[in-house]
Design a protein around this nucleic acid. Structure first.
Ligand SMILES: [Mn+2]
Ligand SMILES: [Mn+2]
Ligand SMILES: [Mn+2]
Ligand SMILES: [Mn+2]
Lengths: 219, 219
DNA sequence: ATATAAAATTAGACATGACTAATTTATGTA
DNA sequence: TACATAAATTAGTCATGTCTAATTTTATAT
């Protein structure tokens, strides 16, 4: 069922508000969308009729399964477009939100996938927010940088903080990808460069610029 | 003055219909937009109030200066996005029109320029239609391929039929750009390769694949 | 427990951009 | 010229998504 621009914005707002544990009230939604509680209630009724949410005064608005999938799809597109605007069109990270707010509503079956591939399947947007996968799964948030790992620590690559072509090319050459297992062999005091083993391969030296831009999950 | 999605579509339709010499009637617009003549007349009144067109029964709809600039801006964005979808996202040329129909309505001051630069300032879209410049000027339609020029012919590069990165890189290396002056020194019967002089420089040999993808204006 | 304030809801209105049906105007043909 | 058809226009309706104002419900504080 094709959703309107407006319905999509409501679903997204309800999703975001639902992440904090407060109940999602008409007032909260109205504040988020900078409109009127009366308008919100009108829309909540429509969304409930379409089984995208359930709403009652006590529980507030709660996304249904299909409503949540729709919200995640919009968020995915929003964040992918933000990556595009920053990485490819050279916008500043602070300039892209309003444009992505428009681009997220472009409808096409193949578009998100093709854009995702073109961008090198980034896990995070330019503001560090995770980009949901097609199935709605959020990437595991790898909160530690490789540069913060201790000597002899084993870890797994969770995401990259830089999705520029040169960096991605460099990683490809090193055979580092999402899920690669990295062991820290030695950390140089002097310049913070590291000697690491990638998937138990031969030791390689990498700069702090590299290790600062790799986010890992420690074992 | 910000235009609505709908106003933009009307302006574009009026522009295209105005290119053929028939008068732009409500019926013609209704056919183009697949809607109703009554709806069209409603909108023509609104567009006239905003000084984007003039309309009367005798002359039909005629774009004002600002109306034409607005139409050209939409067409520019439509065609740039089509180039993006084909060249960067690997869509087929037959799949992109409907998506561009949505993308053309994204509003941002800098977007068209940045997209244009990112794409290497293409002159034509994937269907061969010319892409208006920011000032509304259509590129001179260079209808001859360099491969069709005769020996000793002097000509000027008008556009490229291929805007892929490898081709553009190759042209950069040869120092061939829009406006470059090319003299055909010799054409090889055998494989249609050519010896040419670029801006009166030293002779260089180029393949028929190259000369087929350069459109020129003959002197 | 009662007064007060905040939130939710209802009722009614409005702008936009579409539609249908009826009417008027123009065109074309016998 | 008179009839038939097509195009343009008007009038009235509708769906969407918004608003304001009034009312009801809920929460908070004395
Ligand atoms: Mn954003
Ligand atoms: Mn949005
Ligand atoms: Mn097109
Ligand atoms: Mn359009």
């Amino acid at each position: 069922m094709k959703k309107t621009y407006s319905e999509e914005n409501y679903l997204k707002a309800i999703y975001h508000l639902g992440k904090s544990d407060n109940k999602v009230s008409p007032k909260a939604i109205a504040d988020a969308l900078e409109n009127n509680p009366a308008s919100v209630i009108d829309m909540l009724k429509k969304l409930q009729d379409k089984d995208l949410i359930s709403y009652d005064k006590v529980q507030g608005a709660i996304l249904s399964r299909s409503g949540e999938m729709a919200a995640l799809d919009i968020i995915r597109k929003h964040r992918l477009w933000e990556v595009f605007l920053v990485e490819k069109l050279q916008y500043g990270w602070d300039e892209v939100h309003d444009i992505a707010e428009q681009l997220e509503h472009i409808h096409d079956e193949q578009l998100a996938k093709k854009l995702d591939d073109f961008l090198g399947n980034p896990s995070f947007d330019p503001h560090g927010d995770p980009i949901p996968a097609q199935n709605g799964k959020m990437p595991v948030y790898a909160s530690k940088r490789l540069s913060e790992a201790d000597e002899n620590q084993m870890c797994k690559v969770g995401s990259v903080r830089d999705t520029s072509t040169p960096f991605l090319k460099y990683l490809k050459q090193l055979k580092v990808g999402l899920g690669s297992r990295i062991r820290v062999i030695e950390k140089m005091e002097f310049d913070q460069s590291m000697i690491i083993s990638i998937d138990e391969g031969e030791p390689k030296t990498v700069s702090s610029k590299m290790t600062d831009n790799i986010l890992v999950i420690l074992d």
